[in-house]
């Protein structure tokens, strides 16, 4: 479903992504790990279409279509979802109105009439249950005054509402207590099917205990420098990143 080929991107004239290659097929779960500042969030922003970033080379296809040519909202309609590392607070816009606008925008894109008020509320209730999101949060302004964990839970709630084909979850596990982590991970698993796929960006093995990825990618200095199976995450947990950094830096120096 997603084919990223030699993707380069910069922000404020600084090149961050230096040739990313990544392929994701339906039903798969991928994890992207890597040291701070390596470009993980940048990759997620570029795939979701943040206009602050400039793509300077390479391509990304989503179900055969040119992803990079689509507006962010079209990427969303086509089935891409980004769970933000830092969910944005929007004072004055209620969660309910926000989700109604989101759901109906997608329906409009597919030529469907807006959802009826009762159907919408019913759906909101069901989706809320999946991530055990407090009803009170749903009636407040988007993320405003939410605790760190509540914000992350709210990201998964939005994912549940939008039913994406490909979800990129950027450090959705950080800031969660043990129970919340389980709830969020179970939420992700409940929404998993053979038709959709997930990319989780994380620093911790503990999320991967719940969400079992087939592929682990290590991102370093804007490139995926290593890809492996579940064992790779365990190895990282034990050995840290230094050995990978050294390996890459040596290659750089010698090349």
């Amino acid at each position: 479903m997603l084919k990223v080929n030699n993707l380069h991107a910069e922000i404020n004239g600084k090149e961050i992504l230096k040739g990313i290659n990544l392929e994701v097929r339906p039903g798969e779960v991928h994890a992207i790990m890597g040291p701070n500042g390596s470009g993980k969030s940048t990759l997620s922003m570029v795939l979701a279409g943040n206009p602050a970033y400039t793509v300077t080379g390479g391509s990304a296809e989503f179900y055969g279509k040119d992803l990079l040519a689509m507006a962010p909202e079209v990427r969303s309609h086509e089935g891409l979802f980004l769970g933000f590392q830092y969910p944005v607070e929007i004072p004055g816009v209620s969660m309910v109105n926000f989700m109604r606008a989101a759901v109906n925008a997608k329906r409009e894109y597919f030529g469907e009439p807006p959802m009826s008020a009762t159907d919408f509320l019913k759906m909101m209730r069901e989706k809320r249950a999946i991530v055990e999101l407090d009803n009170k949060l749903a009636s407040r302004s988007v993320n405003e005054g939410f605790s760190g964990g509540e914000k992350k839970r709210n990201e998964i709630f939005q994912m549940a509402v939008l039913e994406p084909k490909l979800s990129i979850l950027d450090e959705t596990d950080s800031g969660l207590d043990i129970d919340a982590l389980r709830v969020v991970a179970e939420g992700v698993n409940k929404l998993k099917s053979e038709n959709n796929a997930t990319i989780v960006i994380t620093h911790y093995q503990r999320l991967l205990d719940y969400i079992k990825p087939e592929f682990i990618h290590i991102l370093y200095k804007g490139r995926i420098v290593m890809t492996g199976g579940p064992d790779l995450a365990l190895e990282l947990e034990e050995r840290g990143y230094d050995w990978i950094k050294q390996q890459v830096d040596n290659e750089e120096n010698n090349g």
Binding site: A52, P72, R75, P87, I90, A101
Partner: peptide
């Protein structure tokens, strides 16, 4: 800009 982008990733037009 970040608020606008966040909303767009959920499918709202600019």
């Amino acid at each position: 800009d970040m608020q606008v982008f966040y909303m767009r990733t959920r499918g709202l037009s600019e």
